[in-house]
Design a binder for these strands. Structure first.
Lengths: 236, 236
DNA sequence: TGTACATCAGTGAACGCGCGTTCACTGATGTAC
DNA sequence: TGTACATCAGTGAACGCGCGTTCACTGATGTAC
């Protein structure tokens, strides 16, 4: 009778557990076969449950996909945040390279999961707003390094030629979320962001075959040189 | 009797025409629904032909996909090469921005075709070697600008910190295909290449929503600033 | 030029497959008094 | 504490769908002599 803490009844507890099990199996299916081939029936089969039973936990296939996407964004986000947290704040350039490398490592360890969130959107699937927050965690882990460097007085000069339209976009971010961070630093931050993810995607999706044999080394070099453009400095 | 020029008999001519029609319809299906949903049966239906008839022209679905991929690479490649050809060689920086913009425009005009070649690979599909040549045309249009600039003495100094592994990868390209082009220029060229395609993918796949409102302006700014890193200069 | 045979495009039916989703149901768990 | 009713997880069968691919066939086109 007395109200329990989080999960009240046995039914509720079982419900949460089974929901988690469904997600785990579905996630494993995505990880090994890709999001397009995710099948409700296959997940149910593995759980030794009738397909229609899944509908007690998810409205339909898209809802399951959405939950997976959120989970996946959070997985990458946590990895990036942890890398930022464990690398020394007094060496922003090293931090930048470390977090970027963590993103790359995660992507190579989870190629299909990476494709789920950064690849071609699944046809017919519309991402609901729930995914936006988790979707930006990894990005903000990188931006946070620039913000920290600026706060610590460790952000050097950066130069960039920007059109008025780009300046407006950048100011919209800095004024709200990053007061005082120079425009050029954020500009190069955005450019570096697209570069790093672009390189990871190219490698994972096979565009660099025959050209780049040491993707890991190139990635590190790219991250370092782009970090310098942002104005991040080595520790003295 | 007398040998005709290219297409000898009526049968051969009809064969080539119908093959082309199948490709056209399939290409339109990819353009409107994406590569994953491409269906042999749907293509046959639209051509008012029985599904099995398609097998006279393509061994299976993968062969059709491969032909489409080659066609699509060539379409983008031609667009990029045309842009390079029509922009003045004495202004390498402008040329670079022009060709890059052409790639972006093509991608936005053909989002599903872009996804076919630069998005997540279709599950289960293995690209045969035929696709490699056409797949590099757009890239070489960009690299060619750097090569031309170097040949014309219009390539400025570029600086980059590179690991030995990256230097080895870069030298493997320059020695064979771009003799004399400085390492740092090609390094920044590769970085710019991944950046530009990364930004296009991010925009098309929805990663910049809520952050960037003027993707066109940002892209131009990114292309220009990266072009400068390569050492490309404005015309005097 | 005419005939006999070979090639090959397209037909029509069938194969086996797996999918998402619905619906009426049963039995166990939870709630109110 | 005990009983009557409400909730809800999971079942089992069925729906309608579209897919890639195979195969024996027909009839038209092409080739050799």
């Amino acid at each position: 009778m007395g109200a329990m803490t989080a999960l009240r009844t046995a039914r509720d507890r079982a419900r949460a557990e089974i929901r988690a099990e469904i997600l785990t199996v579905a996630d494993r299916h995505v990880a090994s076969h890709g999001p397009v081939d995710l099948s409700l029936r296959a997940v149910a089969r593995e759980l030794e449950i009738v397909p229609s039973a899944v509908y007690r936990y998810f409205d339909n296939r898209d809802a399951l996909l959405t939950a997976l996407i959120v989970e996946t964004y959070n997985s990458l986000g946590e990895a990036a945040e942890a890398a930022a947290a464990r690398s020394p704040r007094n060496d922003p350039l090293l931090r930048w390279v470390t977090v970027a490398s963590e993103v790359r490592s995660w992507a190579f360890a989870n190629p299909h999961r990476y494709a789920l969130i950064y690849g071609t959107p699944v046809p017919g699937y519309q991402a609901p707003p729930d995914t936006v927050g988790p979707g930006t965690r990894a990005t903000w882990a990188l931006v946070g390094i620039v913000a920290d460097a600026h706060a610590d007085g460790r952000l050097g000069e950066a130069a960039a030629e920007m059109s008025p339209e780009t300046i407006a976009d950048i100011d919209a971010v800095t004024v709200e979320a990053l007061p005082g961070v120079p425009r050029a630093a954020l500009f190069w931050g955005i450019v570096a962001w697209t570069q790093l993810f672009g390189l990871v995607s190219f490698e994972l999706f096979g565009q660099t075959k025959g050209l780049i044999t040491r993707g890991d080394a190139l990635f590190l070099d790219a991250a370092r040189n782009m970090g310098e453009r942002i104005g991040l400095r080595n520790a003295p």
